[in-house]
Simulated assay, not measured.
Amino acid sequence: MVLHESGEDYLEAILVLRQQKGNVRSIDVAQHLGFSKPSVSRAVSILKSNGYLNMEKDGRLELTPQGESEAQRVYERHRFLSEWLVMLGVSPEVAAADACRIEHDISAETFECLKRHVRQYTQDNPS
């Protein structure tokens, strides 16, 4: 199953909220992303049916191993791209917004090459 950009955003939000709060419920995701509760409920249902998350009896959202892997992948891209754009002089707010758009479209090959280039540059040019 191909995970679409919105699904990646939901998984990333659940991961981030779990790191911040511990337990995550649909209402937390709705508030974090600025979406309606019905929209989040629909997305949660789709992500559950595709094996990316489970909803516990008490309403907590739990990422499956597959969901955790996808969320970590997207979040790593987001953090790296945001930091890289800030290093280039982009404001943190714009960098975060741009990273959110880029993280979904950049290929794995390009992302790995970019990480390797940035690591090499920072090793050759310490602050």
Rank of each mutant, 00 (worst) to 15 (best):
M1T: 04
V2E: 04
H4D: 13
H4K: 10
H4R: 11
H4E: 12
S6Y: 11
S6V: 08
E8Y: 09
Y10K: 07
Y10F: 15
Y10E: 06
E12S: 15
E12W: 04
E12P: 05
E12Y: 03
A13C: 12
L15R: 15
V16W: 01
V16K: 09
L17N: 04
R18E: 13
K21F: 02
G22F: 07
G22N: 03
N23H: 06
V24S: 00
V24C: 03
R25E: 06
S26Y: 02
S26H: 06
S26T: 11
I27C: 08
I27K: 14
I27T: 12
D28E: 14
V29Q: 04
V29W: 00
A30K: 07
L33A: 02
G34H: 06
G34C: 02
S36C: 07
K37D: 12
K37T: 10
P38E: 13
S39R: 15
A43M: 15
S45K: 15
S45M: 12
S45C: 09
S49Q: 06
N50T: 12
N50A: 06
Y52F: 11
Y52I: 00
Y52M: 00
L53F: 04
N54E: 13
M55F: 00
M55I: 14
K57E: 11
K57T: 11
K57H: 06
D58G: 06
G59D: 03
L63V: 04
P65N: 08
G67I: 00
G67Q: 01
A71D: 09
Q72I: 11
V74Y: 03
Y75K: 01
E76W: 08
R79E: 12
F80E: 03
L81Q: 07
L81M: 05
E83Q: 15
M87L: 15
G89A: 08
V90K: 01
S91I: 10
P92T: 08
V94N: 01
A97H: 04
A99P: 04
C100D: 10
R101D: 09
I102C: 05
E103H: 05
E103V: 06
H104I: 10
I106D: 08
S107R: 10
E109H: 11
E109A: 10
F111Q: 08
E112A: 01
E112I: 04
E112M: 00
C113T: 11
R116S: 10
V118Q: 09
V118C: 03
R119T: 09
R119S: 07
Q120V: 01
Q120P: 00
Q120E: 14
T122C: 02
Q123K: 12
N125M: 01
P126V: 01
S127G: 07
